[in-house]
Design a protein around this nucleic acid. Structure first.
Length: 600
RNA sequence: GGGGUGGUAGCUCAGCUGGUUAGAGCGCCGGCCUGUCACGCCGGAGGCCGCGGGUUCAAGUCCCGUCCACCCCGCCA
């Protein structure tokens, strides 16, 4: 039994003691950050969640404790009782970098709760350890002050969220995790049913339909901080299980959902990092975002905008450049990005950009350096063949002046946008064009309702099949689904998709038409979504909502570069848990019980 | 599914065109040290060079395969 825990409970945390506590007897508990042993003076930095406090062991205070302190090693868990002393009165010097740097605790009593093996890496903020090792020893990794700060921030975000929605009459309601499997969309994790052999649940990829049914049930305003599961390939900002702030409201249009979301974001930014966001947020249509930035989640904190040259060059019949002519003949797109001369790129650096282009799926990188008052190009494969008129018009369209570099990309629009926006992000970061401590927040609106899938030769829902079409497009649902726009909106922060939502369909006739456009037969509609269609028969309210990626939001607020730094126990990129080694095979007995046979 | 980067001591990394006994810094262990806080000084231990093949008189180094981590494309209604 610990004498400390029964007789001397903790009196303070390691961040609070100052000269105001002089001569008080205090009890601190925590981990040994470091030991500096001078023989007659032994210094220990004691660390807990809150901070560091220096402990000093002196033979004249306690010879036995001074001797015991000799045993101490990094990460041992200890308790210390002693008097708060002024460092500078003891022949020492204050440490201005520590909140508690004016004082030290002269230890009269030391208890070692537990010893520690030598940790595989240092517990300090500067992380220079491979991520696989950090994840394998996640408990130690989480002891780092920087990660502890991340999780404090995550807590603050969640609390701000709950408070905000509570104050605005939202109910925090829960939805099932084990749900009906529905094909389409993200791959589902499957859970075999023991009671219903050969049948499976899916883990919810989002609470979408349940929150809509809450609206139909008259709950009026719903929110939930909820885990979602998607069995897709991972990225730095994507985990197979992640957390959403999920919201749904009745009797609203886009603007009201967005205003509510802006209030939430303002509150979260204020309470977690003390930043005042200005609302309403900037707005941009999907079309404009793609045209100017080649992305539906543009980082608007810097320039390097794109120019579409397709029409211009079509009018000029390719302007003498065979590559342009071929692209136009194949109905491809030609876009350019002006890199101002301030962003100096050597020829070899531009050559290296070509590698990036290929990584992004492009074939090559057209280029031209503007010279002679915009009358000539150098360092360009097009320079010899382009018509003078074409050259001048391209320069003008791009706003390019002498010394500027124009980068070209042409082909299928999707590829052109992927490559050019990838280049933009890369160069923006390389030239430090992104202002520090700035927040590029915007709504992207007017998304297409459908995307055409070239493999399946069919239209798929761009957002999800319950998204309401814009009213002027209703007539095109059948005849020309490709032009229909959705009442959908994304919230983008610093080039990250942080949230997305829509106004939903509350009219069963329109819902059927959308299903028709998606090529889902009436029988399938009934089999897959019968419960929803049924609910739509009983007076559904107009409703809409939004969901935010809590992990991504916390990542941005924490200044982290990976979502894994704000998830306590994340998975590796292959979806495995390096800490517990999950997933693992299971016993035959278990499989038999579930009626499952595993292929060898 | 595809492309890229990396894997050498506990950690971070160096190791050239293949050539003696594979190095450094930090950490670790022992000793000394009464004012450190990146403490200092002296001494010491520590290696399946990711794994499996191959080429060669000789492989950390070259070739093939494979595993793992990370980044990107596809994918993520």
């Amino acid at each position: 039994m610990s004498e400390f825990l029964t007789q001397h409970p903790r009196t303070h945390t390691c961040d609070v003691l100052t000269l105001e506590n002089l001569d008080q007897e205090v009890v601190l508990m925590g981990w040994v950050q470091s030991v500096r042993d001078h023989g007659g003076r032994r210094f220990v930095d004691l660390r807990d969640r809150y901070g560091l406090t220096q402990i000093v062991f002196k033979p004249e205070t306690s010879a036995s404790m001074h001797a015991l302190a000799h045993e101490l090693r990094s990460e041992w868990c200890i308790a210390v009782r002693g008097l708060v002393e002024d460092r500078s009165l003891n022949g020492g010097s204050p440490n201005p970098r520590l909140k508690t740097g004016q004082i030290e605790v002269d230890a009269r009593q030391l208890e070692i709760f537990s010893q520690s093996e030598t940790p595989p890496f240092l517990i300090e903020n500067q992380i220079d350890t491979g991520e696989d090792k950090r994840l394998a020893h996640r408990v130690l990794d989480l002891r780092r002050p920087s990660l502890q700060a991340n999780f404090k921030l995550r807590h603050d975000v969640m609390q701000a969220t709950r408070k905000y929605f509570d104050e605005n009459n939202f109910l925090e309601l829960e939805t099932p995790v084990l749900v009906k499997y529905t094909p389409g969309g993200a791959r589902n994790f499957l859970v075999p049913s023991r009671h219903q052999p050969k049948s499976f649940f899916a883990l919810a990829e989002s609470p979408q339909l349940f929150k809509q049914m809450f609206m139909m049930a008259g709950m009026d305003r719903y929110f939930q901080i909820v885990k979602c599961f998607r069995d897709e390939d991972l990225r730095g900002d994507r985990q197979p299980e992640f957390t959403q702030i999920d919201v749904e409201m009745s009797f609203v249009d886009e603007r009201q959902v967005q205003t509510m979301a802006e209030g939430l974001l303002k509150s979260i930014f204020k309470k977690s990092i003390g930043v005042e966001l200005k609302a309403p947020f900037q707005r941009m249509t999907y079309q404009e975002a793609m045209a100017r930035f080649g992305s539906d989640k543009p980082d608007i904190r810097f320039g390097l905008e794109h120019t579409d040259l397709t029409e211009l060059l079509r009018n000029l019949k390719g302007a003498g450049v065979p590559l342009f002519e071929q692209t136009l003949a194949k109905h491809g797109m030609i876009k350019a990005m002006r890199v101002p001369k301030a962003c100096e790129l050597s020829r070899t650096e531009v050559d290296k950009l070509e590698d990036l282009v290929k990584q992004l799926g492009g074939f090559g990188l057209g280029r031209a350096k503007v010279a002679e008052q915009g009358k000539a190009w150098t360092q360009s494969p097009f320079a010899k063949v382009i018509t003078p008129e074409g050259l001048v018009q391209i320069n003008q369209a791009c706003g390019a002046e002498d010394g500027d570099l124009i980068l070209f990309q042409m082909g299928k629009p999707k590829m052109v946008h992927t490559v050019l926006s990838g280049l933009r992000t890369n160069l923006g970061a390389r030239f430090g064009l992104i202002p520090k401590n700035s927040w590029g927040v915007l709504w992207v609106t007017d998304f297409p309702l459908f995307e055409y899938d070239e493999d399946q030769k069919t239209h798929l829902a761009a957002h999800h099949p319950f998204t309401s079409p814009q009213i002027q497009d209703l007539e095109h649902l059948k005849s020309n689904p490709g032009v229909c726009k959705a009442r959908a909106y994304d919230l983008v922060i610093n080039g990250n998709e942080i949230g997305g939502g829509s106004i939903r369909i509350h009219d069963s006739i329109i819902q059927s038409k959308v299903f028709d456009a998606l090529g889902i037969s009436p029988e399938d509609q009934q089999a897959k979504f019968g419960f929803l269609l049924d609910a739509l028969k009983f007076g559904p309210p107009p409703h809409g909502g939004i969901a935010f990626g809590l992990d991504r939001l916390c990542m941005l607020l924490a200044g982290a570069t990976s979502i894994r730094d704000v998830i306590a126990f994340p998975k590796s990129q292959k979806g495995t848990d390096l800490l517990t080694q999950a997933p693992t095979p299971v016993d035959d007995k278990q499989l038999r019980e579930l009626g499952i046979m595993v292929r060898p």
